[in-house]
């Protein structure tokens, strides 16, 4: 059958044009924009690397940048622990395939389909210090000393947001763990039964190593997701990411700098592009590093 170059081009072109112009080109060009100074209106002025030097050395930009980077790492660690440990436990329970497992699985996924901002608003309600359910429950079971303004306390705000975020996304790692668990051959467990291996040993020496590819994928997804997050903080703490910037992450810092009006000052898109470039580098390098590390580990 005749397959010509022309017809190939006709098939590929529409997707190629849209994808290149609105996705790939912007990703690359936004990096280039970090070398200019402009406010979104009017002429751009080439300034070399000065946006980066402002970002890394000039107060208050450097303080905000390193603070948001540090908070972002905390946010990532909280998420990895809260979300993925919960997901693994649930997946192990679902893997028994008892009555209702399918139903449970479907319901656990519901939060994932709800908009991030709505999840943020719902949890703002739950954490409400005056009449939110969380403090209400704590008070009614005699744990009143634990009740606090969750989103207003710099020590707890980011953790509280991470809980909301984990609540929403736990379904994704859960499904991936489940797929991983189901692909393990039962023969291995039967053989280990004959050898008298305990349940804990089975988990740590058989299950965990065999689902390590899944753990790898989940870590990558969580990393990319957390380092480009924005809406959850925006919904729960606004663009100022309070209290006192304790929940400021790279996404909110980027948004504020590029699009936010700070006391009438024009947006600083050049500096914004420098932040976006850093995010791009962190995500890119993080993923590459992780791929290499993992690749080496697989060679034992």
């Amino acid at each position: 059958m005749k397959r010509s170059k022309t017809s190939f081009a006709v098939f590929v072109l529409p997707a190629f044009v849209i994808y290149t112009i609105f996705m790939l080109l912007p990703l690359i060009s936004s990096l280039g924009l970090s070398l200019f100074s402009w406010t979104g209106y009017g002429e751009k002025e080439f300034v070399g690397l000065s946006n980066f030097s402002r970002l890394f050395t000039e107060n208050p930009f450097n303080v905000r940048f390193f603070n948001s980077l540090f908070n972002n790492m905390k946010f990532f660690i909280y998420t990895i622990i809260l979300q993925n440990v919960a997901a693994l436990v649930i997946a192990l329970l679902l893997n028994k395939e008892l009555t209702g497992s399918k139903f449970f699985r479907t319901v656990y996924f519901i939060p994932t389909t709800i908009s991030v901002v709505i999840v943020g608003f719902l949890w703002t309600l739950i954490y409400n210090p005056l009449w939110g359910p969380l403090n209400y429950v704590l008070k009614s079971v005699g744990l009143e000393f634990l009740a606090k303004p969750w989103l207003g306390d710099p020590k707890f705000a980011l953790l509280s947001i991470a809980v909301a975020n984990a609540w929403q996304y736990v379904g994704i790692p859960m499904m991936l763990f489940l797929a991983g668990l189901q692909s393990i051959s039962q023969d291995i467990y039967e053989a280990s039964d004959i050898d008298g291996v305990s349940s804990w040993q089975k988990f740590f020496y058989i299950t965990l190593p065999l689902i390590s590819p899944v753990i790898f994928i989940i870590t990558t997804l969580t990393f990319v997701g957390n380092f480009s997050a924005f809406e959850i903080i925006y919904a729960m703490e606004g663009t100022l990411a309070g209290p006192n910037y304790s929940t400021d992450i790279l996404g909110t810092f980027f948004y504020r700098t590029s699009f936010g009006q700070r006391a009438g000052a024009p947006p600083d898109m050049g500096l914004g592009a420098a932040i976006a470039s850093c995010m791009f580098a962190i995500i890119g390098l993080g993923v590459i590093l992780w791929f290499n590390l993992y690749g080496k580990r697989e060679n034992y």
Partner: peptide
């Protein structure tokens, strides 16, 4: 790659 990193462009 998250497309939002290209939002400025």
């Amino acid at each position: 790659i998250p497309i939002r990193l290209g939002v400025l462009y």
